[in-house]
Amino acid sequence: MGDTGTELGVDCYELYDAGHNLYPAIASEFDACATGFSASSSYNAFVRDSSIGLGYSGAYTEWSAAANTLDNVLAETGRNLRDTGQALMLAANTYAATDAAAQAEYDRRKRELG
C-alpha cells in the first residue's frame, strides 16, 4: 500500500521539485557545455601550408571527431534530464489529483517552496 493523503502530497512535491527545479537546472549545465563549445569554430586554428605537419588542416579531423562526440554525449545527457523532469512533473500532478489531501499538501509546498 502506497502513501496517501498528506504523505502522498509530500511525495508528489518531491517529484515536482526534481522535475521542475533540480533536473532542468542540471540539464542547463549540460546544455551550456554543449552549446558553449563548437568544434568547427576551431577549424581555422589548425590551417597551415599543406607541406607542414599532417597536411592542410593537420589533426583537425581526428580532434573534431572526438570533440563532436563529447558535444553529443553532453547534449544527450541534458535532453534526457529535461524530458525525465517533464515526466516527473506529470507524475506529480497525476498522483496529487487522485487525493484531495495530497493535492492540498502538494499545492501548499509548491507555493511555499517553489
Binding site: 502513501d3 504523505e7 517529484l15 534526457n80 524530458d83 525525465t84 515526466a87
Partner: peptide, 17 residues
C-alpha cells in the same frame, strides 16, 4: 521514464512507499 505520458505514467512510477 523520459518518454512516459499520461497513459503510462502511473504504471511507470508505481506507488510511493
Amino acid at each position: 521514464l523520459a518518454d512516459s505520458g499520461p497513459g503510462d505514467i502511473r504504471e511507470d512510477m508505481g506507488v510511493p512507499r
